[in-house]
Design a protein around this nucleic acid. Sequence first.
DNA 1: CCGGACTCCTGGTTGC
DNA 2: TGCAACCAGGAGTCCG
Length: 293
Amino acid sequence: MPELPEVEVVRAGLEPAVTGARVTSVTVLDERSLRRHDGPSEDFVDRLTGRTFLAPRRRGKFLWIPLDDDRVTTPEALVVHLGMSGQVLLREPGTDDALTRIRIDIEHPGAGPLLLNFVDQRIFGSMAIDRLASAPDFVDETVPSQVAHIARDPLDPRFDDARFFTRLAAKKTTIKRALLDQTLVSGIGNIYADESLWAARVHYDQPTATLSRARARGLLSEVRAVLNRALAEGGTSFDAQYLNVNGQSGYFSHSLNAYGQQGKPCPRCGRPIVREQFMNRGSHFCAHCQRVR
DNA sequence: CCGGACTCCTGGTTGC
DNA sequence: TGCAACCAGGAGTCCG
């Protein structure tokens, strides 16, 4: 579900509430939500309880909250991945949310006691305690070990455009597959891939090797524009499956030009948007504006 | 290296 | 109304 804009909305929402807060209690209601934690749930609870949260960080669709390191020598973080249906809801202590898998009670020096409910219908998301290590490309930056293979996202100031174009051209694959490859560029999922391709007038099955540098540049620029617009509108919500930390919907679903718009006229040329199966999911595009060439 | 199939899951919607 | 089939924003592994 959540792609870069939705995860960033969650990160930004958590920042003022959790930074400097101490974890007072951790309850794991469903151990399956610890699939990315290396160890049993008791280990997760022990390593998190009593720790203090630093400012939340994000790369692509991964979110993490670094932990103070006065207890351990290796810096660690609480890593959150929302998967398809995960949410982090900021609540008054004692609040129940349906499908809560992990409950984290915290004490904020200014705001007092707060509750973080990790809610996840499909349990593809997860929480984990992971060690922080130097980023592969910059030693002055740390990322959780399970995020080390994830590329920088297009909104990261250190994203290397030239390297992206070079790697893209060297790939023997097609463009939508490449946009969804989190080791090439992160943060893009099915919605924003379709939206960016529509905006750049590129067909999802265009081979990356034959996509001109100029068109690749145009595409990356549209990716950034789409992500930034979605961010400004609070992300995309179709239903209660994506909400910000306060349980509110984003508004970008009203701005979609291609995703989920099958049968409706293309906002650019008026011909119907079509939907095709690709990579076991839907690809939405305008067969007139977006052609392989 | 690449693509496709398959896995992890639940619950809302659709169609008979 | 009941119920089964289908569908969903992700990502990892395995196999050919």
